[in-house]
Write a protein that binds this DNA or RNA. Sequence first.
DNA 1: GCCAGAAATTCACCTGCGTTATTTTTTATG
DNA 2: CATAAAAAATAACGCAGGTGAATTTCTGGC
Lengths: 250, 250
Amino acid sequence: MPRHFLRKLDLFTRLSADDRRALESVVGERVRRIGAREDIVREGDAASHVHLIVEGWACRYKQLEDGRRQIVAFFMPGDLCDTFIDVLREMDQAIGTLTPVTFAEISRDALGGMAARHPRILQALWWDTLVSASIQREWTVNLGQRSATERLGHLLCELFIRLQGVGLTEGNHCVLPTTQADLADAMGLSTVHINRTLQELRGSGLIVLKGRNLTIPDLSALQAASLFTPNYLHFDHVGRHLDAVEPLAV
Amino acid sequence: MPRHFLRKLDLFTRLSADDRRALESVVGERVRRIGAREDIVREGDAASHVHLIVEGWACRYKQLEDGRRQIVAFFMPGDLCDTFIDVLREMDQAIGTLTPVTFAEISRDALGGMAARHPRILQALWWDTLVSASIQREWTVNLGQRSATERLGHLLCELFIRLQGVGLTEGNHCVLPTTQADLADAMGLSTVHINRTLQELRGSGLIVLKGRNLTIPDLSALQAASLFTPNYLHFDHVGRHLDAVEPLAV
DNA sequence: GCCAGAAATTCACCTGCGTTATTTTTTATG
DNA sequence: CATAAAAAATAACGCAGGTGAATTTCTGGC
């Protein structure tokens, strides 16, 4: 069940069969499925559960009083939301779906218990949490300094490489299920300008985007154009590269 | 020595005298002082130490290849940088001083050992880490959605309340040691526009700023003008309010 | 109290992106 | 397959904030 999640943790550490079994059982306990454009967690909710995205995309967002919405993070299969959240009392932002989503709802006790019994899993959860924080910082850089083209290009690089990390790319191609309005809310740009910017990226041959199908013909070219460096994703902890990760047994 | 830090943790939990002594000894082990505009940590450094700001201000920043700089976080006395960082291999951003800074350099082993022996401290460190992450997310909202005036007002609210949390305000007044260029780099605006925006905030009576001296005559007015809500700082975990925190014994 | 460099301020002009509105295309749904 | 609703694309115009260049005001060191 937590196929993509296990694959992602593999980027960081080697989990034992026992670890894997424990994870699978905790994750399998309570799995739910909801439609697109619904909330998994609302602002102000008690911080009681951790959620693992099994299928589909979601986002963390904050809605301002006057309606403006900022997406502060995208969640894709394999992503854990609010891993160690139980220390805080209530959620300060909401988590909503962008597509229909299947997710596992994990109680703090179940997660804590497992972490206590499986130190490598605990270590991997920390890594995942720290990487999320690192991504958040990079978003700050992205919104603060980069032009619309660089900014959007940077996001596409990040999403593509993260999808690669959980095995959801095929060659230089992946599925990008967000609408242009979602991208706009994430990048602090208007939908009109997202559209213009996508045209520009298309025009310069850096991306091919038809419907939900994204192809990046030359990832390093897009990276260069977007001032993107992947170090902040910390995918290289154990000194392996993506290509070197053997396919995950399903 | 870690006076402000202890005071901040007090917002979250009640530490025992024993906890406090342990913290003090770990923090006192290696204290250094460096000048303004120097780096404490450079991008690419091994992630070996944790730093506690004892006096002065610093920031986490990232410099793009072409010279643009984004400040992604401000550090003030009592702030811990990269608490659980040892899981990651190398730093993806740098930490530099804005003023002369006194800081404690804590080895991962010393911190880990203490955390293992003092569960309440561990819990408090988690809280601190999660609050930092929450602040980072709010910065994303700030840069993505708010206008220059709201954005800067929001930052000033946050800094003021954080200073309050470590006992560095007097009434509605505090010291703001940043230059306008620093504020510009943090807010993704030009120095010229930061200047214009400060004038505007002054003109509407929301702030009084002379040199490093900042007064906020009516904090709730500034909050309202900036769409600021303090929930993301999670200062209310134990249900107490700032006013109710007794002065810290020094 | 003087001096140099840093910081703040001001000015004039410009551009990247926003806004509003309309049209076209795609995608769900009965 | 028809239809409605959502998403994408296009267009015209406006403004928030950027740029570059002076100028003035602070600040720290002697």
